[in-house]
């Protein structure tokens, strides 16, 4: 295990950052009824990476090499996420229309993520590695990017969760109080986008879905407060991610799907242990 730690230390640290940050935002996505964003945005980020791989592949084919470094992946994931976010729209809570759009974004992004790599063999390899969540690819520079990005969004959430709560719980009151509903939503959705970009570009879309949407659902009904809901979701995410690393290591399975599989029992246990809200 110690060699494993040496080899994958950066990857594990990056996953831990994501496992703390993503579920807290997922908790708000569940509460706001916009959880489909948690599926649509990582898939859009993946489609962005697919577009990038195609363009980069075409540009470098004649030079005899392809550039599939993760700096590029971050950039293209950001492009995809931003396009996805614009298509879904930024609202205080879901309307049927917004959920519909998120579903369409997921659909289109999934199609692109399969179609585009067929035009570039290296792109296909690159994308498959992302989908499987090969955390081997995470190096020191990636870890710094992930740690910095998650630190910023977690600090932002700590600072603004009461505002996000008021805007979600009662937007009319927020307006009366002079709080900008639009600005609050932009900040919140911007943070979700950042988590999506760094998550998808490093651990892949499956791990990002898994951490955004799964842990929170086990904590919502039993949480005595919004603060507890956020904290418990992060805790479950961290436990789930630990289980998934163990599973991925011992059974030699790709990490991406393991994160989803690992989060499930953690979430179920949370649901049972924290059954009753106060």
């Amino acid at each position: 295990m110690s060699i494993y730690l040496e080899l994958f230390g950066a990857s594990l640290a990056a996953l831990a950052c994501l496992a703390v940050a993503a579920p807290a935002f997922g908790a708000f996505l569940h509460a706001r009824g916009t959880v489909l964003q948690g599926l649509a945005l990582p898939q859009a980020a993946l489609a962005g990476i697919a577009i990038g791989a195609l363009i980069e592949g075409a540009g470098h084919a004649h030079a005899g090499h392809t550039h599939t470094g993760s700096g590029i992946a971050f950039g293209w994931a950001a492009v995809g996420t931003l396009l996805g976010l614009c298509a879904v729209g930024v609202r205080w809570r879901s309307s049927g229309v917004e959920n519909g759009r998120a579903a369409v974004v997921f659909c289109v992004a999934s199609a692109l993520a399969v179609l585009l790599p067929t035009f570039s063999p290296t792109g296909a390899l690159h994308l498959e590695a992302r989908t499987r969540g090969e955390i081997l690819a995470i190096g020191g520079a990636d870890l710094i990017a992930v740690a910095a990005a998650t630190a910023v969004v977690v600090a932002t959430l700590v600072r603004t969760w009461r505002h996000v709560l008021l805007v979600g719980q009662d937007p009319t009151a927020a307006r009366v109080h002079g709080l900008s509903v639009l600005r609050t939503n932009l900040v919140f959705n911007g943070c979700v986008a950042v988590v999506t970009v760094v998550g998808t570009a490093t651990a892949g879309p499956l791990a990002t879905f898994g951490l955004l949407v799964v842990p929170a659902i086990g904590c919502q009904a039993g949480a005595p407060s919004m603060r507890a809901f956020l904290a418990r979701s992060s805790m479950v995410g961290l436990v789930g991610a630990s289980l998934s690393v163990a599973l991925s290591f011992w059974a030699d399975l790709p990490l991406g799907p393991c994160v989803v599989v690992g989060c499930l029992p953690a979430t179920l246990v949370a649901r049972v242990v924290w059954r009753t809200g106060s």
Binding site: H30, A31, R32, G33, R93, R159, T160, R162, H163, L165, L166, G168, Q169, D170, T172, A173, H177, G178, L179, S180, R183, T184, V187, Q220, A221, A223, P224, S225, M226, R227, A228, F229, G277, S278
Partner: peptide, 23 residues
């Protein structure tokens, strides 16, 4: 007008009245 899907406590809800308008 309170949305029930947010598991907010009574204290959190009352305190949201005293929030600074600056994020």
């Amino acid at each position: 007008a309170l949305d029930g899907a947010h598991p907010a406590s009574v204290l959190e809800t009352v305190l949201s009245g005293a929030l600074s308008v600056h994020l």
